[in-house]
């Protein structure tokens, strides 16, 4: 195990969530590969979302098993793991995007501010307005930049009049750090932007609705390093107002942007803990193997 290298790479600036507690299992190391109970502390002090015993099935396939974890308010939590481990599936459960897949079945509880989001009384439209999402590949609508950002506020009837909408679009683009680049070309199609700009446009689009949680599904995997750096900076800033959940296949990215990290493996949540602990002192052999690059 070469924890030294990783430690050297992780920029620990003390910005971790102060409420996160010590990991209870600090002394023991799990070496049994077949151990599938989640290792680490799943709860936080000020949770935004609570997930308990979530199972996901695609037709017959059991894609996610007994996942329980908390997502703290104003934290960035990263889901990592090899491909096919269920991290994206779990992310899509959080705003019920899996509803669009007919063969998908979900059991367990997911709460947002105490409401079970799979409850009959919860309207999925309202839920998704509260839990926004940014996708792996930038997917701006085939409309102008302005219309892309205005889409959410329009459908939800959030603004009265053009002036208010203008103001909201401006502010959202500014928060997404895109305003300087697009100020002069609001009427051009969103697809005319570069990949990184498109992804920030999608973030601006999500912010415009003023959600409480933003889910990001590998938001930088289709981008070049410079665009990635900008998005990562943006994520760090957004933490002030939003709760962010980010799925990433890049361990370095998880280490750079998140306060807590959850490691998924073949449908199980293997380990969860504060990011620096996961990367410097993983408790489960699988986690250790993954972050040291034995597989992934």
């Amino acid at each position: 195990m070469n924890t030294m290298t990783i430690e050297a790479r992780v920029p620990l600036d003390g910005a971790l969530n102060p409420n996160a507690r010590e990991v209870p299992l600090s002394s023991t190391q799990i070496t049994d590969y077949d151990h599938r109970q989640t290792v680490g502390k799943i709860t936080v002090d000020n949770p935004k979302m609570l997930c308990r015993e979530v199972n996901v099935y695609y037709s017959e396939k059991h894609a996610l098993r007994q996942v329980s974890l908390d997502i703290g308010a104003n934290e960035v939590i990263a889901f990592i793991g090899p491909s096919g481990c269920g991290k994206s599936t779990f992310l899509r459960c959080l705003n019920r995007m899996n509803d669009t897949i007919a063969s998908c079945r979900i059991t367990g509880q997911i709460q947002l501010d105490g409401d079970n989001i799979y409850d009959k009384n919860i309207d999925v439209v309202q839920l998704r307005a509260r839990v926004g999402m940014v996708f792996q590949k930038p997917n701006p609508f085939p409309k102008s930049i302005y219309e892309n950002v205005a889409y959410g506020p329009r459908i939800h009837g959030m603004v009265n009049g053009k002036a208010e909408l203008d103001e909201l679009v401006q502010a959202s683009l500014e928060r997404a750090g895109l305003i300087k680049e697009v100020e002069k070309r609001m009427d051009e199609p969103g697809t005319s932007l570069s990949g990184g700009q498109q992804q920030r446009l999608c973030i601006a689009r999500a912010i415009a609705v003023n959600p409480e949680v933003i889910l990001m599904d590998e938001p930088c995997s289709a981008l070049d390093p410079i665009a990635t750096a900008k998005i990562e900076e943006l994520i760090d800033e957004l933490r002030e107002n939003y709760t962010l959940v980010i799925v990433t296949h890049s361990m370095q990215q998880a280490a750079r942007v998140s306060q807590r990290t959850a490691y998924f493996h073949l449908g199980d949540l293997i380990e969860i803990g504060e990011t620096d602990q996961i990367f410097t002192n993983p408790k489960h052999k699988l986690t250790e193997d993954y972050i040291t690059g034995r597989f992934g």
């Binding site: 939800h156 009265n160 208010e164 502010a171 928060r175 750090g177 300087k180 003023n210």
Partner: peptide, 24 residues
């Protein structure tokens, strides 16, 4: 990269509780 400052705060209508707005 612009840092977040006061001018970027969302207008009052948008920062109103999203739950009530959508519900309406």
């Amino acid at each position: 990269m612009n840092k977040l400052d006061d001018s970027a705060a969302l207008p009052p209508t948008a920062s109103r509780d999203i739950k009530t707005i959508v519900n309406a």
